[in-house]
């Protein structure tokens, strides 16, 4: 199906097209107790991501941004709506076709250490997707793992070491290398830098940008930090209560926010300027006093 206005100009099919996605939790009818109210975690979300593009999905906790990502990844089944990826309806894929999807769409999570098996070597962690998908032989996979390590800026001596020997930023580089192993066209990044220190966060954001330029990757970049999202996104969608309340080019959304919630988020985001922060406090106090 086509949704006018959401596809990029020129009529090209977007890489990812999500239409009217909903995900409800609970709400089952239970004997003797009537129907329980469903939590509408995602409540009618439509979005597109073009090839080589970054869409930033920003919102506070409970806004439904991660649940949206998990539905697109098919880690959760949507309650309704459709998800088209690379021209194919993936909403109800199962079995080998679902596994095939994993080669094209990968994920990076927030906690880099928790996403790695502590007993595996870094080389095995990065090569594991290749093993699962039966690609290459052992020597070829090891060579590919070394190439990927180099791509994300880690020395090949990392191959034999375990995840706990690495810092948070290095672990996130390992996550990125693993996500790249199957040569995906889209990576869902779920708060990939929120657990990292500012200086390291900048390194990882720069790496993601470089890889995008080099490999033509698309990102759905999910995060709560507005400044981080702006620094990497071409377009931005703001989520609140399971819905997208505002979407548009990054500059437009940040420089002239239309929705009241976007304005409130921007006004609350801390900035490194004591004068601005003190003025805001006085404004908040004045608002309370009124």
């Amino acid at each position: 199906m086509s949704t006018p206005g959401t596809a990029p100009a020129g009529g090209a099919t977007p890489l990812l097209q999500v239409t009217d996605l909903t995900k409800h939790f609970g709400g089952r009818r239970r004997r003797g107790r009537g129907a329980e109210e469903a939590v509408k975690a995602v409540d009618g979300v439509s979005l597109t991501v073009g090839r080589g593009e970054t869409l930033g999905l920003v919102g506070e906790s409970g806004s439904g941004k991660s649940t949206t990502g998990y539905c697109i990844l098919r880690l959760l089944d949507a309650s309704s709506g459709t998800i088209h990826f690379e021209g194919q309806d993936i909403t109800h894929l199962t079995g080998s076709r679902l596994r095939g999807l994993r080669r094209r769409m990968q994920v990076i999570f927030q906690d880099p250490l928790a996403s790695h098996n502590p007993r595996m070597s870094v080389g095995d962690i990065i090569a594991e997707p290749l093993v699962v998908h039966g690609i290459g032989d052992a020597a070829g996979r090891a060579a590919e793992a070394r190439r990927l390590l180099d791509l994300v800026g880690l020395p090949s001596s990392a191959m034999e070491r375990r995840p706990h020997e690495f810092s948070g930023g290095q672990c996130q580089r390992i996550s990125i290398a693993r996500a790249l192993a199957l040569k995906p066209s889209l990576i869902i990044c779920d708060e990939p830098v929120s657990a990292l220190d500012v200086s390291v966060q900048a390194q990882v954001l720069n790496l993601l940008k470089d890889l995008q330029d080099e490999l033509g990757l698309a990102y759905l970049f999910i995060a709560h930090d507005l400044a981080v999202v702006r620094s990497i996104s071409d377009r931005i969608a703001v989520m609140q209560g399971g819905r997208i309340v505002e979407a548009g080019p990054a500059d437009q959304v940040y420089d002239s926010p239309q929705h009241e919630y976007t304005r409130r988020l921007l006004a609350a985001a801390p900035v490194a300027d004591p004068t601005v922060m003190r003025r805001r406090r006085l404004e908040r106090q004045a608002a309370v006093a009124r």
Binding site: S167, S199, V200, A202, Q203, L226, S231, A250, D251, V271
Partner: peptide
Amino acid sequence: RALLGAMPSLQGDGGRDGRLAAIPGM
């Protein structure tokens, strides 16, 4: 100074086309 420079800003820093001033190393 480097820590302040590494922070992404709401004003954009050139946005998608810019690069953040990361502090190298650990």
